[in-house]
Design a protein around this nucleic acid. Structure first.
Lengths: 346, 346
DNA sequence: CTGTTAGCGCCTTCAT
DNA sequence: ATGAAGGCGCTAACAG
C-alpha cells in the first residue's frame, strides 16, 4: 500500500486501469462537464481515484483544454496593507470562482512590472489584475500597453485597479472625489491652513488625491501653498521623512497635514511625536484608504475609506464579466472623521 | 501585423516556422539548457520569437518536463500583517529563484486547509509552504498528514512554518523561548502582576507563547493566575474582546497584559483606551511578532521581534535545499522594549 | 453511454 | 549540430 520511496503521481490512466474502464470514461466521471456516464462506472472510477490518491494534473488539463484556471495578480508590495487587503479580496473571490491566483511583486518599478507581465503571460492566465501603481512618466508604459494588448488579443483579460486612461477594464477608485470630500469636511471642522505630503511626482494615485484635495480647499476658499507640501515616497517611511522635512522647514501655522494614504499618515504622526508635537492636538493629520490599523493608533486617524477587499473582489468579477461596460459605478468612497482631526473651536 | 481580432498565442511551432528551423532547434535555442545550437540559427529563432511575441506555455512545459516551477503558499489570512510579511518573503525569494507562487487562504479552518492542500496538489507544485496555524485538536490532522506525505512521495516538498512535531521540514520559530525572554525582561523592568490574552485553545503557536511566558514568570518567582487571563481569537478583534473581558471581570492590580501577538495587542490597547485606561501608563501591554505598525502606535509597543520576511525566504530556501537537515538553527528572536512597558520605579 | 483516437504545446531521445 | 518522432497527462471529437 503505502509506498515509502519516491514515485510519480497517479495518472488518469492509472485510475482508468484500476477501475477497469477507458480513459475517456475516467475523464468524464472525474472532470467531465455534464454527467453522461453510467452511475456504476462512475462509482468505480471515483473509488479508484480515491484509492490511488489521484488529483488531476492542472497543467495537463490546461494544455488539453487550451485554457487555464489561473488569475495573475500584480501588486507593488505585498506587505503593504493597501495591497494585501486587495489581494485578500482577489484571493477570496478567486476561491469562490474555483480559480487559482498567482502573485508577483513589482516593488514599484515599472521596468520590473513589464518584465513580470511578460513572464506571467507564460502561465496563460485567464485574467491579469494589475494593482501596482501607475505613473505618468513611465518610460515602459508603451511597451506595457503593447504587451497587455497582445495578451488580450490572445484571449486574456486585464483589469487595472485605478488607472483611468487605459483602454483596459478598470476598477475606478474615486481618489480625486474622495480627497475633495475630505478637504470640504476639514474646512467644515474649522481648519484653515493646510499642508500635505504629496508622494512621488508622477504617481497617478498620488496626483489625483492631491488634485482633489486642492480642489476642495479652493472651492472652500482656502488653498494648499507649495511651501507647506513635501514630496516623499508612498510608504510609511516616506510619510515619516516628509513630515520630518515639513517640520524642519518650519510648520508655521499649518493646522492640518494631509498625508495621501494611511501608512504615510502613520509615519507622519510618528515624526510629529518624535519632534515633540502631538498629532491631532497640535497638528491635525488625515490619511486615505482606511486600512485596519488606523483605528488602533492614537489619535485614531481621520481618513477616506476605500473598501479594499471589495475592490479586489470587484476586480476579479469585472475581469470575468461578459460585457465590457460592466466596469460599473466607481467604488464608493467615504470620509471618516476620527480623533486626528478634532473640530476646531476658536 | 497587429491583429485586431482575437487569436491564439504564438506557439513554438509558429516560431520555428517563422525562423525556418525545426521545432527542436527552436526549443533548444529558446529554453534548452546548454547551448548546442548554431549562433546564426539561435539569432533567427530569437528574432522570430520577438516578432511573434512568443512566450513559452508554462503548462505545456510542465507536462513535457514532468515538473513545474510553482510554489504553493497557504496562509490563514492574507490581510493579516503577520502572514502578508511572510508572503512577501516567500514571493521575493521565489522571484529570485525564478519560481512562481500561488496563494490560498485557509481562513483558519483546518477542514478548509485540507481541501486546499488537496486542490493545490493538482498544480504539482515543486514545494508547498504551510504557514496557516497548526492546532492541537485538529480533527483533520491525520488526513492532512496523509495528503502531505503522499505529496512528498511523489516528489513534492512541504515546509511548515512553526509546527515542530510534524515529520516535515520546518522553519522553527522560537515562540516559547521568545515569550520566556519577554517575561524575564518584564520582571527586570519591575513588573510583578501579570495577565494575558491567551488566544484560542489548542492553537499551537498560542500555547507555546503562553507556556514560555509562564515559564519565564515562574522562573522569576512570579506567575500567571488563571483569573487574569482570557481566551480570545488570534486577531485584532479578538485582542479587543479579550481585554474587554479582562476589564469587565476587573483588572484588579494587574500591571501588565501579554497579548500573544501584535495585532491582538493593538486591539487590547484600543480596548483599554475605550475604557478610559491609558495603555502603558495604567496598564502595560506587550505583544509578539514586531509587525511594522507597532512603531507607530501610542505608546509604541513592546514585543518580541520575529524577522517575518526572512522567515518566508527561509521557508522557500529550506524547501529547495538538497539535504534534509538544513532546517538549521531556529529563527532568532529578540525582545524589543518600547513605551508600552515603561520601567516601574516604585 | 462507452471506447478509440487525435491532438494540445512542448521537450527529448534517437538517428542523421 | 540539426531534425523527426514519440511521449507527457489530459480532453474532445468521433464512431460504435
Amino acid at each position: 500500500m503505502s509506498q515509502t520511496s519516491r514515485s510519480t503521481p497517479a495518472t488518469l490512466h492509472d485510475v482508468a486501469r484500476e477501475a477497469g474502464v477507458s480513459l475517456a470514461t475516467a475523464s468524464r466521471s472525474l472532470n467531465g462537464s455534464t454527467r453522461k456516464v453510467n452511475e456504476a462506472y462512475r462509482q468505480k472510477v471515483l473509488e479508484a481515484a480515491a484509492r490511488l490518491g489521484y488529483t488531476p494534473n492542472l497543467s495537463a488539463q490546461a494544455v488539453a483544454r487550451g485554457t487555464t484556471t489561473t488569475v495573475a495578480l500584480l501588486v507593488a508590495d505585498i506587505a503593504d496593507p493597501y495591497f494585501s487587503s486587495i489581494a485578500a479580496g482577489v484571493v477570496g473571490q478567486a476561491d469562490r470562482e474555483q480559480l487559482i491566483v498567482t502573485m508577483a511583486e513589482t516593488e514599484r518599478d515599472p521596468a520590473r512590472e513589464l518584465e513580470l507581465v511578460r513572464a506571467m503571460r507564460g502561465q496563460r492566465p485567464r485574467v491579469m489584475i494589475l494593482a501596482s501603481s501607475r505613473r505618468a512618466d513611465d518610460p515602459a508604459a508603451e511597451a506595457l500597453q503593447a504587451e497587455l494588448t497582445a495578451y488580450e488579443q490572445t484571449g486574456g483579460r486585464v483589469v487595472f485597479i485605478t488607472a483611468t486612461d487605459s483602454p483596459f477594464r478598470t476598477v475606478t477608485l474615486e481618489n480625486r472625489e474622495g480627497a475633495r470630500a475630505l478637504a470640504t469636511r476639514m474646512l467644515d471642522l474649522g481648519y484653515l491652513r493646510f499642508g500635505a505630503l504629496t508622494g512621488p511626482a508622477g504617481l497617478r494615485t498620488a496626483e489625483d488625491r492631491i488634485a482633489g484635495f486642492t480642489e476642495g480647499l479652493v472651492a472652500g476658499g482656502s488653498d494648499l501653498p507649495a511651501d507647506r507640501t513635501a514630496r516623499c515616497a508612498f510608504t510609511r517611511d516616506g510619510g515619516y521623512a516628509g513630515m520630518r522635512e515639513l517640520i524642519d522647514r518650519g510648520l508655521g501655522d499649518t493646522q492640518l497635514v494631509f498625508a495621501l494614504n494611511d501608512v504615510m499618515a502613520m509615519g507622519a504622526m510618528s515624526a510629529l511625536r518624535d519632534a515633540g508635537l502631538a498629532p491631532g492636538r497640535e497638528v491635525a493629520v488625515a490619511g486615505f484608504d482606511d486600512i485596519p490599523t488606523v483605528r488602533d493608533v492614537t489619535p485614531t486617524l481621520t481618513t477616506v475609506r476605500l473598501p479594499l477587499e471589495e475592490v479586489g473582489e470587484r476586480a476579479l468579477r469585472l475581469a470575468l464579466a461578459e460585457s465590457d461596460d460592466e466596469s460599473g459605478a466607481p467604488v464608493p468612497t467615504e470620509v471618516i472623521v476620527r480623533d486626528s482631526t478634532p473640530r476646531l473651536t476658536d
